[in-house]
Design a binder for these strands. Sequence first.
DNA 1: TATTGTTATACTCTATAACTATA
DNA 2: TATAGTTATAGAGTATAACAATA
Lengths: 159, 159
Amino acid sequence: MTTTKPDRDAESVEQDGAIGLGPLEGFIGFHLRLAQDVSFRTFARHAGKPRLRPGRFAALMLIGQNPGLTQMDLSRAIARDKSTVTPLVQGLQREGLVSRTVSTTDRRRVSLRLTEAGEAALDALLDHAAEHDRKLDAIVGDRKAEFLHLLKKITGELS
Amino acid sequence: MTTTKPDRDAESVEQDGAIGLGPLEGFIGFHLRLAQDVSFRTFARHAGKPRLRPGRFAALMLIGQNPGLTQMDLSRAIARDKSTVTPLVQGLQREGLVSRTVSTTDRRRVSLRLTEAGEAALDALLDHAAEHDRKLDAIVGDRKAEFLHLLKKITGELS
DNA sequence: TATTGTTATACTCTATAACTATA
DNA sequence: TATAGTTATAGAGTATAACAATA
């Protein structure tokens, strides 16, 4: 049926297939990493079809919620360098999802807005994200409010 | 003093510097991502000195806790392809932290073990991680047990 | 035939530094 | 001088596919 497990190598320690974690077992940071990793992969696997990976999702959402925001605003909001934002938004523009217009009041700045196609793409992504998050909701259950509060507290205080 | 904030562009929506998140505000997955991102960066920034980034940390820990484990065991434990593991462990070996010996009972397999230097490096990293996790403990407070339980539940059920 | 590990290759994400243009 | 954005470049981290050795 499953993987025809060969005889356990005597040199190998894990007899039952369970890998020991050691002190990491009680570390919040470590389990935060594992949970995020699996959550991210689950989301990406299903949202991968519409060619929109989680990184661009946040950008699209932020632009949609804050039309006219500049690349520096976005850079700060997603905690990425401006040189990371440039190819990101240019890619979104190339795909017709975002418009980039030079600000008339400060010609150094580029104002970002969603196009109609961008709105549609965002809606589709939101549907996907909502579906994915329903799974997380089901897992977390009635402790969601507190769980969310702690995650936000970590984000807010660890900077 | 602080950033001499220029006049807000009339084209820009966020008047108070707060960027709206929209529906993402209530998404567990999104906040999981933000919290992990900031936690990871904080850890990496401080642990960056000893040239041991968080990815190698998990590998070192797993090898330390499960001496003799094979590259496939490690691959499964960290949920990465075997082709990702090869350069990872070869790098650790090159730096003298890990020994790689061909199994005598199955000559396809490579058994991984920490060297003395590897043990020392792991100890140093553990100190760093413990220090970092104390910050997280302080933020999470007495709800740590439940928080950890939910993170593990997500990791366990989302696969 | 199936599994372990290696190699070649490529793609994504990210940052630093140097640059242009604007302010 | 300082800021917004671009470009060049480089380094992680990751995966797929083809492969050799072994089972």
